[in-house]
Design a binder for these strands. Structure first.
Length: 446
RNA sequence: GGAGAGGUGGCCGAGUGGCCGAAGGCAGCAGUUUGCUAAACUGCCGUAGGGGGAAACUUCUACCGAGGGUUCAAAUCCCUCCCUCUCCGCCA
């Protein structure tokens, strides 16, 4: 069964609300507000409360009137069959019908407002998430490896790449604009090698099934995973069709199972997907303007998992370790950070960021973000599972969804260039990539 | 892009205004018969929301691709949209 609430043109009229369950929300409105803290600041809670109550009243009114109408219509049918006059009854039912129409118009407005509000409430943080205001309050969970020892001052990846002739930002600006890059020669091959290395590791060692999804998706898909309605300005959208360019493979891959009921035995489902990702980067003017760090288009290998609710937190640890395995294989120093409540994304209940060491910045930079969304996306997307308990079919429940970058390919290329730079400006290729590079061991000036 | 055909329960498929939440079949579940299996027979067998009950359950409402309209009454009539299929065109 499809979830009509995701259709932009749908005018809701009684029935279920998939995002936040309305009854639960009503009973826990204050607690929800409390738990969301700063993240719920822009939600008009009093209006929400009023709308929920109005919906309840109007719904029961229409139900009563519909019952009346149904009885009346049956009576008309009976009278006509018995060749008696039904005029009086028909007139009375016409009046009832008009009352229903009036009340339903009102109900429609209430539900529309309610649905829109509901879709803009962020997910609740998990209890293990540290409380905090912003990125400054994130907690470092662990570090792996150590920064490389460079005998000369670290050059930035754009200096290295342009000197080597494998990165071209000027021509990218000409053919597209700011925040685009052209990779050429060994640079292009290195990007491709990284993609293949990541996909191969995840599919052969970590148990993920490879997916190559569409890069354009519809509005329903974007709403299901939480990009819409709140973050439309971050997305590229086609002018003549209601399609969006995906900002991450999370969107098409999570939506693979939208409006489906999975069997318990099929869980967990694990997918990995390579896709380009497209982001408007509205509001990031002046940040990371040089280099490959922040582009309108970049490549990413994504990990996506669907699990039973009681398994999702162990899956989050697993999934994060799979992303880490890529960096370990490449021999890149990194740390894992637990995002605090204030830094958590809209849809996530808990997130680990993996940050790789960049010598030129003397800093860790985000290269992966691994999140458990619990049932937040599953509700919006209506992804459920049905189990069996001693031959009886158990109640269908929402699955938990997770995803993480495994990894952002462009930023991985940055990390390889900067961490493996040699005094002469050449780049040593990490062992694991060499067979994807046709045996090339070092990138020299082209 | 042009022309046409469709979308009904887990599946197949009937249903052109009321007694239709929807015939019939398949699959599934429970039982009867049987030495076992098979077959036959009987019953059950959609989803969601609200009310009642400790509970098995019961009652109301909605749902026949989605939305809107006509009507006392819509799976059925009208409009819009989405999707699938066939043929032509174009293309990789």
């Amino acid at each position: 069964m499809t979830n009509p609430y995701l259709d932009a043109r749908f005018q809701p009229l009684s029935g279920i609300f998939i995002m936040y369950d309305l009854r639960t929300l009503r009973d826990n409105l204050d607690a929800t507000k409390e738990q969301l803290g700063r993240r719920g600041n822009d939600i008009p809670w009093d209006k929400l409360r009023t709308l929920i109550e109005q919906r309840r009243t109007l719904t029961s009114q229409t139900e009563q009137l519909r019952h009346e109408l149904k009885m009346g219509s049956d009576k008309v049918a009976k009278l006509k069959r018995e060749k008696q006059s039904a005029d009086a009854c028909m007139a009375a039912m016409k009046a009832v019908g008009e009352r229903i129409k009036t009340i339903e118009d009102e109900l429609r407005n209430v539900e529309e407002a309610l649905t829109d509000l509901n879709l803009r409430i962020p997910n609740l943080p998990h209890s293990s998430v540290p409380t905090g205001k912003d990125a400054g309050d994130n907690q470092e969970a662990r570090r792996w490896g150590s920064p490389p020892v460079l005998t000369t001052p670290a050059k930035s990846h754009w200096e290295l790449g342009e000197d080597l002739g494998i990165l071209d930002f000027d021509r990218a600006a000409k053919i597209s604009g700011a925040r685009f890059a052209v990779l050429t020669g060994t640079g292009a091959r290195l990007e491709r090698a990284l993609i293949n290395y990541m996909l191969d590791l995840h599919t052969t060692q970590h148990g993920y099934r490879e997916v190559l999804p569409p890069f354009l998706v519809n509005r329903s898909s974007m709403t299901a995973t939480g990009q819409l309605p709140k973050f439309e300005e971050d997305l590229f959208r086609l002018r003549d069709e209601d399609y969006f360019l995906i900002p991450t493979a999370e969107v098409p891959v999570t939506n693979l199972h939208r409006d489906e009921i999975l069997t318990e035995s099929a869980l967990p489902i694990r997918y990995t997907a390579y896709t380009p990702c497209f982001r408007r980067e509205a509001g990031s003017y002046g940040k990371d303007t040089r280099g490959l760090i922040r582009l309108h288009q970049f490549n990413k290998v994504e990990l996506v998992a669907f699990t039973m609710p009681e398994r999702s937190y162990e899956e989050l640890e697993r999934l994060t370790s799979h992303a880490e395995a890529i960096l370990q294989g490449l021999g890149l120093h990194y740390r894992v950070v637990t995002l605090c409540t204030g830094d958590l994304g809209f849809s996530a209940a808990k997130t680990y960021d993996i940050e790789v060491w960049l010598p030129s910045q003397n800093h860790y930079r985000e290269i992966s973000s691994c999140s458990n969304f619990e049932a937040f996306q599953a509700r919006r997307a209506s992804i459920r599972y049905k189990g069996t308990v001693e031959k009886n079919v158990a109640k269908t429940e929402f699955v938990h969804t997770l995803n993480g970058s495994g990894l952002a390919v462009g930023r991985t290329l940055v990390a390889v260039l900067e961490n493996y730079q040699q005094p002469d400006g050449s780049i040593l290729i990490p062992e694991v990539l060499r067979h994807y590079m046709g045996g090339v061991e070092r990138i020299r000036k082209e």
